[in-house]
Design a protein around this nucleic acid. Structure first.
Lengths: 164, 164
DNA sequence: ACGAGTTAGATTGTGCACAACTTAGTTGTC
DNA sequence: GACAACTAAGTTGTGCACAATCTAACTCGT
């Protein structure tokens, strides 16, 4: 009797209610986060996924030897995106002048992506916007860091389907 | 000297590294979650956003009086989506036979969305898949619930820009 | 009752995501 | 060294997201 009501079987079951769904909390928060980046991205003239590509390339730029460039698949592995998403995105970034693309010499299947000075120049503005945005966000840093760790933990388990 | 290296200013600054970004953790985990739903959604013949619409309508169906139907803007408010996203999505769901759409009688500006028997019938399968998926996910329920709460907390603060 | 202002959806255009497929280059085996 | 198997990008097609704009319907003040 506790599970049913005048509306029929299962209508009293609230486990599928929207505000109980972790999947929706993720979906909504991810989109809200993207929107929070919009004012900055608009001034840089790039989109959010393009910004993520730049994050990888900026890191690559500071860590790697210059002889070792970033391939599309290396980008895809870090961002968990495939060539169907990255190829047109990178073409647009190339047109904007933020990256250059060329085939690998040793292996002509790979496309190497390299930051241009234009792409490199966006980093400082993004970095300073981020630190001021973090400050004005009334959420303590440790809470954001914990959340990030929990997300990675969940992500790891979502990607390793235990026995499905 | 601790902030610079042979590669120039800021190259030692790791605050923009991809694995430090909460925004990317959200983006990646949200997409991974959507992919986890794919096998179930494929058997139901619907997409992930369409599933979210059904979550709202299933809830509406069990809670509301039959005289009070769900408008596009009510759907959009709950899902945080606008008509540009929902209108074509709902048209596809109408073609599939899962919902019906009609103009309001009292106010002809609103479009009322109603579950059909076909749309209602998907609930049981979704519900049972969800509970078994939750079981096979090696993450304790309390951790998922805590994560969900933290996400809503962040979402609230992202949507109320304190003084920007 | 009538026009300014508002509201609800729909429309248009761009850019992801991603499945499925194609093409071209590389590797391993014999 | 030929050829099957594999790999990396690119291509195609569908369906979101979302900004910007449009249109029709409603509200309200006078």
């Amino acid at each position: 009797m506790s599970q049913t009501s005048a509306h029929g079987p299962d209508s009293g079951d609230t486990t599928l209610n929207l505000d109980r769904q972790l999947c929706f909390a993720l979906y909504a928060t991810s989109r809200a986060m993207t929107k929070a980046y919009q004012p900055m991205l608009r001034t840089l003239g790039i989109t959010y996924p393009q910004y993520l590509v730049l994050l990888v390339l900026w890191q690559w730029d500071s860590e790697q030897r210059d002889c070792d460039l970033c391939s599309v698949s290396a980008l895809g592995e870090q961002l968990m995106l495939d060539s169907g998403t990255l190829t047109p995105l990178l073409k647009r970034m190339e047109q904007q002048g933020h990256v250059s693309r060329r085939r690998g010499i040793l292996d002509e299947r790979v496309t190497l992506v390299q930051l241009t000075d234009s792409g490199r120049s966006l980093r400082a503005r993004a970095s300073s916007w981020r630190s001021s945005a973090l400050e004005s966000l009334a959420v303590p840093q440790h809470r954001l860091a914990d959340l990030r760790k929990e997300l990675w933990f969940l992500l790891d388990h979502l990607q390793s389907p235990p026995s499905k």
